[in-house]
């Protein structure tokens, strides 16, 4: 904690304590009175009904772009190997399994991408186009109906 990271917000704190005081102060005061002369079984019951965890205030500000949840590894399917090579020039590829599933599909694992199910390279826009995530599920369903 260097000097730059600590600076005062005195008013904020006074306000926040004022808000908390009414609820928790009363609970603890009540609890202290209720447990006087009680057995431990009775005290556990009072704790159970009275001392519930405080509710945390929500954080409404900005979060960082990449969380662990977003960075989780996902499987991608591509039409050609060229698409795979293009992708690996843009993103870090950690494991390349190279399984040829259906002659034109390629399975690989990459990191640092958002939650995307499938995509393809489009020359006209020079970018990856995101396909419908449930594309393959839908195909399977259609086959069953037939």
């Amino acid at each position: 904690m260097g000097g730059k990271s600590i600076y005062g917000d005195k008013m904020d704190i006074l306000k926040s304590i004022g808000k908390k005081k009414s609820k928790e102060f009363d609970v603890m005061k009540r609890f202290a009175k209720l447990i006087e002369g009680k057995t431990k079984e009775e005290i556990r019951k009072i704790e159970y009904s009275l001392l519930k965890p405080e509710t945390l205030p929500p954080y409404m500000g900005k979060t960082t772009a990449q969380t662990e949840h977003q960075k989780r590894t996902v499987a991608f399917t591509f039409k050609t190997q060229k698409d795979v090579q293009k992708l690996s020039s843009h993103f870090q590829v950690l494991t390349y399994q190279g399984n040829n599933l259906h002659k034109t599909d390629w399975l690989m694992e990459i990191v640092r991408l958002l939650d995307i199910g499938a995509m393809e390279w489009r020359e006209e826009t020079k970018s990856f186009h995101i396909l419908n995530k449930n594309l393959f599920k839908k195909k399977r369903k259609l086959k069953r109906r037939k």
């Binding site: 609970v27 431990k40 005290i43 556990r44 704790e47 159970y48 965890p53 405080e54 945390l56």
Partner: peptide
Amino acid sequence: LTGIDDIQKYFKQLSPKERGGYLRLNRLV
């Protein structure tokens, strides 16, 4: 030994959910 009726219920009720599955009782207790 501690006088709790149902230990799993007690810990679930009194532990903040934000801490996940390793149940630690809250500050007030």
